[in-house]
């Protein structure tokens, strides 16, 4: 796990916990109070300018963590700092410096044209008119919102509304952008637009981005760093490639040969499937490079075409959820 004392960390959590007391039915009338640990001691630090993916199965504690980082929930224990502030104590000050997008909640005014919501946000965040205008023009361009700016929000499609939600969270030029499931329910084109926009935002403005998601496409496209949480605890903190190396070091080389032939015998690889002239060779990325392997195959057979398959990140994460921290 990475250290939490990093001076450049713009988001920091140390031993962060949140528990809820719930009443559970225990007999006809009687109810027992049960304490549920939604977040059970999470520690991490996010350096300025990075994009971090915060993933985990449903009920793992992702949203609860984000709500503590944004000042919505008061932590039960531990420490949180965002942009140097303690979120729940200095909520209003923090609100000016962060942007938040919820996939399942709207910050837009339902019955008003989208443009009116942006204008209201200018007043709410007290952004100078010229700065607001510049920023708005940029968002409208990049998110292609011009055609529906004057449409009441209730008449927008989900993809259009989501672009509006992202824009309104950014008009005050926040240092950190939190997104809770930003691509949930979006079609492929809208997803791609949102991802490209976030990548640009990070590259051009240096905005730190923390996003929770179930969509591993979001992570592959955007996140240099990954935090996996399960049962309220961090079970992985590192780069996407580390995750692959650690949990699924095998890659597959798919070769098309000139003619069907029996399974090749190649050093450092194992044929796992043969289908006509096509063969699948599995190899360990830590001991064998794809280039060496291709050279060896070319010597052994008449090679026509080839591709290298990365392990499916979804399978990797699914395995971690299943095995939990026992995988370490």
């Amino acid at each position: 796990m990475s250290g939490s004392d990093d001076d450049t960390a713009v988001v920091m959590a140390r031993d962060l916990t949140k528990h809820f007391t719930v009443r559970r039915r225990a007999g006809r009338v009687r109810r027992d109070r049960v304490t549920v640990e939604a977040v059970a001691g999470v520690t991490f630090a996010v350096p300025r300018g990075t994009i971090v993916g915060y993933v985990g199965p449903n009920g793992a504690g992702k949203s609860t963590t984000v709500k503590m980082l944004t000042g919505i929930l008061v932590p039960s224990g531990g420490e949180v700092r965002v942009a140097g502030l303690e979120p729940s104590r200095r909520r209003i000050e923090l609100a000016r410096r962060i942007g938040v997008v919820f996939g399942q909640r709207s910050q837009l005014w339902w019955d008003l044209p989208l443009a009116d919501s942006f204008e209201l946000a200018r007043h709410l965040y007290a952004v100078p008119r010229s700065r607001h205008a510049a920023r708005l023009t940029e968002c409208v361009d990049l998110l292609e919102m011009a055609p529906f700016l004057q449409t009441p929000v209730r008449q927008l499609s989900l993809g259009q509304r989501m672009r509006g939600e992202i824009a309104i969270a950014l008009l005050h030029d926040p240092e950190v952008l939190f997104l809770d499931e930003p691509t949930i329910g979006l079609d492929v084109v809208s997803k791609a637009k949102v991802r490209a926009f976030l990548a640009d935002l990070n590259a051009l403005h240096g905005t730190t981005i923390v996003l929770t998601t179930h969509d591993l496409g979001d992570i592959e496209r955007l996140c240099s760093r990954l935090l996996i949480i399960d049962h309220g605890r961090t079970i992985f903190d590192g780069a996407l490639n580390d995750l692959r190396d650690r949990f699924e070091p095998n890659r597959t080389l798919v070769v098309d040969l000139a003619a069907p032939q029996p399974a090749l015998r190649i050093e450092g690889a194992q044929v796992v499937r043969v289908d006509g002239a096509r063969q699948w060779l599995r190899f360990d990325r830590r001991t064998t490079t794809a280039a060496d392997l291709v050279a060896r195959v070319a010597v052994a057979a008449d090679l026509v075409d080839l591709t290298v398959e990365e392990p499916d990140i979804e399978d990797v994460v699914a395995r971690i959820y299943r095995d939990g921290s026992a995988a370490f």
């Binding site: 000042g71 609100a95 399942q104």
Partner: peptide, 13 residues
């Protein structure tokens, strides 16, 4: 509905 979340992330009472 949890919509109160939105009020808590705005810089206003």
């Amino acid at each position: 509905t949890g919509q109160f979340d939105v009020m808590l992330i705005r810089p206003a009472g």
